[in-house]
Amino acid sequence: MADTLTSAAAPGTETAAYAARIDHVSKAFGRPGAQQLVLDDIALDVRPGEFVCLLGASGCGKSTLLNLVAGLDEPSAGTIATPGGRPALMFQEHALFPWLTAGRNIELALRLRGVPREERRTEAERLLELVRLGGAHRKRVHELSGGMRQRVALARALAQDSQLLLMDEPFAALDAITRDVLHDELTRIWSETSLSVLFVTHNVREAVRLAQRVVLLSSRPGRINREWAIDIPQPRRIEDAAVADLSVEITEELRGEIRRHGQH
């Protein structure tokens, strides 16, 4: 499983020391003269195979940053490089196409990538197996539960065969038990592949549960405030004492950051 995902890496990936390089990126919205700075001088590398969580309160521009990396928007200043090609992006809403079955959604991603027709079906089945939804190929999106939809969405993102997976609060709308299960699934799939993940969340525990590195963004404008390398071995549990301890520390920092906004 793992090697099929790695083998198709774009040429040059091996030499690159990063899966994504965000090089002093700023982003402002609004008319000239009345511009609002959303991201201020963000510099961040995601190493190949690394799992990075971007953490921040509302208004820190974390989704904006993800859109920039995904190429859905242009930075106002600075550059973004993703040597592994166009990154895959997973949203908070599953964003699956309701007019297609679960399997066809994945096959569409394969088709847009240029996979020949004969291989699409088998590849889609394989990806569904990977997210433990073998047999759901013919299911309609509305027949699936929230957790199953996000797993199909994950399979569809993996179908892009990108080296970098961007995730924009993908589990925020799920109930706690389902979210917990999906954390385990994501960790498993990430450790079985050579995928790099840039994961945006406002949930501190989720960040500590998943990431090798947590990057805290300040709000308005978004700046990199602090980062933590997390060496608790995977698979972790969200209830682990070590996860809880670090979460307390990071939450304190995040609260301090939010409090600053109330002072002026």
Binding site: A70, R86, E93, A95, A109, R156
Partner: peptide, 10 residues
């Protein structure tokens, strides 16, 4: 969202 999802898939 559908159009954005489509764009990220190329």
């Amino acid at each position: 969202l559908y159009l954005r999802a489509g764009r990220t898939m190329g």
